[in-house]
Amino acid sequence: MLANFLIGLREGLEAALVIGILVAYLVRIERRDMLRHVWLGVGIATAVSLGFGALLTLGPQGLTFEAQEIIGGSLSIVAVGLITWMIFWMGKTARHLKGHLEGQLDKAIAVGGGAVVTMSLLAVGREGLETSLFLWAGIQSAGSSTAPILGATLGLLAAIALGYVIYRGAVKINLRTFFQWTGVFLVVVAGGVLAYGVHDLQEAGVLPGLDTLAFDVSATISSGSVLGTVLKGVFNFSPATTVLEALAWTLYVVPTMWFFVRTAFRTPQAPARATISPVPTKDVPATSAA
């Protein structure tokens, strides 16, 4: 539940910040006539994201077990790729997001209302599709419990509320720090989703090694225990983990975490001060007194 709550919070806050920046900018430049185009784009993006989530949930039903496992495993791996790109992109550009969006909106306004709809649709829709896919993968890997769905819903609601109070100026948060530390957590979560995807493909017979275990701690941490449920819900930990799952988790989490910490936590370099060189003076010939 915690993992899906944080995914919903982070992804929802990104979308809320995008909307808030677009709306605030139009109000500031006194182009309120364009607000309806922004909200139209947001509405379309929301509908597309919900439809995508429904397709992911209902689409595989009726297929064979192997086909469902192949689809689930493949989409889980795709979700890990998207969330990894998003983590690095936001960690790098969080400080410049406002200027980037305002520049894109200026260009769209110059073209017309349709361009503003398209611009807001793409900006918010990207976040929505990423959220749908990664939340779907997280909920699938957590099993049939309703806790992941509840956590994701609470995260999205908290993101909407937080985005609103930030827009109103009631709360100020350090977005760079927020995206840094949630990025660290999501790298670990994504590693668990990747391992789950690998396991699905092993069950479908696409990948080998389903019966070759790296470790089995079921006697100590059973899947039905409180600790097992928490580890499964947060990190997608499986008491009986195959060698290929453990290898995929390690090869993803270790280098990804190393690169993310190096890039996202790097102190921004202060702009170099301009140095003023002394202006060379020409030798002025001495004048003799008359």
Rank of each mutant, 00 (worst) to 15 (best):
Y164N: 15
V165P: 05
I166Q: 03
I166W: 03
I166T: 08
Y167N: 02
R168T: 08
G169N: 04
A170V: 10
K172M: 09
I173F: 13
I173A: 12
N174Y: 02
L175Y: 09
R176A: 09
T177C: 00
F178D: 02
F178I: 01
F179T: 01
F179M: 02
Q180R: 15
T182W: 02
G183H: 02
V184W: 04
V184Q: 05
V187Q: 02
V188W: 03
V188A: 07
V188H: 02
G192F: 04
G192I: 04
V193C: 00
L194P: 01
A195K: 00
Y196V: 05
V198M: 03
V198I: 15
V198K: 03
V198R: 00
V198Y: 00
D200I: 00
E203F: 06
E203M: 09
A204H: 08
A204Y: 09
G205P: 02
L207H: 13
P208C: 12
L210P: 00
L210S: 11
L210G: 05
D211V: 09
D211R: 15
L213F: 14
A214I: 05
A214K: 10
F215G: 04
F215S: 06
D216Q: 07
V217P: 05
S218Y: 09
A219K: 13
T220V: 15
S222L: 03
S222H: 08
S222N: 09
S222Q: 06
S222R: 12
S223P: 05
S223M: 06
G224E: 15
G224P: 11
G224D: 14
S225D: 14
S225Y: 12
V226E: 14
K232G: 14
K232D: 13
K232M: 11
K232W: 08
V234T: 06
F235T: 15
N236G: 01
F237S: 10
S238N: 15
S238F: 07
P239D: 09
P239H: 13
A240V: 03
T241S: 15
T242E: 07
V243D: 10
L244S: 12
E245Y: 11
E245T: 07
E245V: 08
A246L: 15
A246W: 10
A246I: 07
A248K: 04
A248I: 03
W249M: 13
T250Y: 00
L251T: 12
Y252M: 06
Y252P: 05
V253N: 06
V254G: 06
V254S: 11
